[in-house]
Design a protein around this nucleic acid. Structure first.
Ligand SMILES: [Mn+2]
Ligand SMILES: [Mn+2]
Ligand SMILES: [Zn+2]
Ligand SMILES: [Zn+2]
Lengths: 142, 142
DNA sequence: TAATACATTATATTTATTCTAAACTGTTGA
DNA sequence: TCAACAGTTTAGAATAAATATAATGTATTA
C-alpha cells in the first residue's frame, strides 16, 4: 500500500522519524475512510483495541502536537476539561450535539460566508469558525 | 445604591443566599461599566485587589457555576487549559486576538445572520456562535 | 562495531477543577 | 436568650488532563 509512504511523508514533514508507534498512530488518524473527531483518551483506546503494540501517552501527545504544528490535525476547543481534535483540517464548521457530546462537520460550502461588519485597527481576521449547538427537536406539533 | 438589591436578586434566583463573599463577587462581575471576559484566576486576583475580604477559590467556583446555570454568566471555550467566562450573556460573537490572548465582543448586529444550509434529522439549532481569530495586520505595502 | 542521535516509556510534575469535611454564621423557635 | 438547625466558607485533599523528566531502547552513521 502507498499509505505507509504517506504516513512516512507526514511524519518526516513533522520532523519525526517514522517509527512503529508513530505509524500506528498515523494509521488510526489518517487511514480512516472519513475524517473524525477525537479526544486523546479515545485515541489511545482506539490504538489499544486495533493494535498489538502499546503506545505510551507521552508518544501520543507528542505526535498529536507535532501534527498540529504542521497542520495535519486541528484542535477544537469545546470543553474546558478536555481537548477535542479533528482530522479534518480543511476549513469547515461544526454542529455540536450537546446531548450526545458529538461534533458533526459542516462543510464550508454549507455555510454562507460569515460577514463581520466590524474591524479591529491593526488586526486582520485569520480564520472564522462557526459552532452551532444542536438539541433534540421535540416538535410537539399541536 | 440599588445595585446591592440587584445582586441579592441574582443570588436568590441562583439559589444562593446573599453573603458578604457572594456580594463581593457580584460587585466585581456585575458592577462593571462594561461587560468583560475573565478566567477564574483573574477573577480571584481582581477580588483580592479591590476588597478587604478574602474569598476562597471554592466559593468563587461555586458562585460562578451557579450563575452559569442561571444564565448570568457564559463560558467561552477557547483554550483547553483554562476556561474563559463572559459577563455578557446576550447573544453575541467574538474576535480572539491570538497575540494578546484577548477576547473582543462582536455584537450580534455586526454579524449577518449565519445561514447553515444543512440540517441534522431530529435535531434543531439551539445557538450559533462565531469566533474570528485575529492577528496583527502587518500589511507590508509595497 | 562504536558513537551518536533520536524515540519510547514509566513516572513525576503541574495545574485547573472539583470534592470534602470541619469550622463558622445567621436564622428560627422554644 | 439561646440552642438547634440550615446553609456557608474555607483549607486542604483529590482528580484528571497535560506536560516534563530522565532512564532505557532503537536506529543511523562513521
Ligand atoms: Mn465547568
Ligand atoms: Mn495543547
Ligand atoms: Zn470537524
Ligand atoms: Zn463576550
Amino acid at each position: 500500500m502507498a499509505y505507509a509512504e504517506q504516513y512516512i511523508e507526514k511524519l518526516r514533514k513533522s520532523g519525526l522519524r517514522p517509527t512503529k508507534q508513530r505509524i500506528k498512530i498515523c494509521e488510526v488518524l489518517f487511514d480512516a475512510e472519513n475524517t473524525f473527531h477525537f479526544t486523546i483518551k479515545e485515541l489511545v483506546k482506539i490504538i489499544e483495541n486495533q493494535a498489538n503494540i502499546k503506545v505510551s501517552l507521552a508518544t501520543v501527545y507528542n505526535t498529536v502536537h507535532a501534527f498540529m504544528r504542521k497542520g495535519y490535525l486541528k484542535e477544537i476547543p469545546l470543553n474546558a476539561s478536555q481537548s477535542y481534535y479533528d482530522t479534518n483540517v480543511t476549513h469547515h464548521h461544526h454542529f455540536f450535539d450537546e446531548e450526545e457530546n458529538r461534533l458533526i462537520d459542516i462543510h464550508q460550502d454549507d455555510v454562507d460566508e460569515v460577514n463581520i461588519k466590524r474591524t479591529i485597527p491593526g488586526k486582520k481576521i485569520k480564520s472564522v469558525e462557526v459552532i452551532a449547538k444542536i438539541v433534540s427537536d421535540n416538535q410537539s406539533q399541536k
